[in-house]
């Protein structure tokens, strides 16, 4: 019958539509990263790796505030060498965070960066950062974790000050479970 066929066709389309929307829910994850990059939402840093050296813009100074944060259950001492830097846009700046594992066991940490204001994130170019990799530390050991970054000269003029925070998460157990295999999926590797 006609109605029966029409119904069948419609049901298949609508089911297809809902499967598509289920997929769309997951597609929101990478879309969100693109969205973040475009709008500077959430201060995700996407620009990393080597960069051509350019001449620094000495006419302008930007205050860069560095913050080290421990997430829950992370007993390390973790703080920036210098809490406040003054940087010229275009200038390559080297600094470091100091970490110390006071516990009696060796642990692995992952540092997660975040920038405020969010729009500044796309102008902060990290050439090298300890946050690219998981950071193991033996019981009672100390480490200097290096950070090399450049602020883009295109930084909008109304931004005078940028905050760059690193939150340290204890991933010892996750690493042991993964046995150092693949990056956990779901989010972009930082």
């Amino acid at each position: 019958m006609d109605t029966a066929r029409a119904n069948r066709r419609l049901v298949i389309r609508l089911l297809g539509g809902s499967v598509l929307m289920f997929g769309f829910g997951f597609a929101l994850v990478p879309l969100y990263d693109v969205f973040c990059e475009v709008t500077g939402l959430n201060g995700k840093i996407t620009r990393t790796g080597a960069i051509e050296t350019v001449e620094a813009d000495t006419s302008r100074q930007v205050r860069v505030r560095l913050i080290g944060i421990n997430n829950e259950g992370m007993p390390w001492e973790f703080s920036p060498q210098q809490s406040l830097l003054t940087v010229n846009p275009g200038e390559m700046k080297q600094t470091a965070f100091q970490a110390y594992n006071p516990t009696g066991r060796s642990m692995v940490a992952q540092a997660i960066p975040s920038v405020s204001p969010g729009v500044a994130a796309q102008y902060l170019h990290k050439v090298n950062c300890f946050c690219f990799n998981a950071q193991p530390l033996q019981a009672g050991a100390r480490a200097d974790m290096p950070l090399l970054f450049v602020i883009d000269k295109e930084l909008p003029p109304e931004i005078h000050s940028i905050t760059l925070s690193y939150t340290l998460f204890d991933i010892t157990e996750a690493q042991a479970a993964d046995n150092g295999s693949a990056e956990p999926d779901g989010g972009s590797p930082i």
Partner: peptide, 16 residues
């Protein structure tokens, strides 16, 4: 140790 450093995976915080 547990009071200073907490217990990961539980609500017990590090109080150090």
């Amino acid at each position: 140790d547990i009071v200073l450093h907490g217990k990961p995976g539980t609500a017990m915080q590090a109080f150090a």
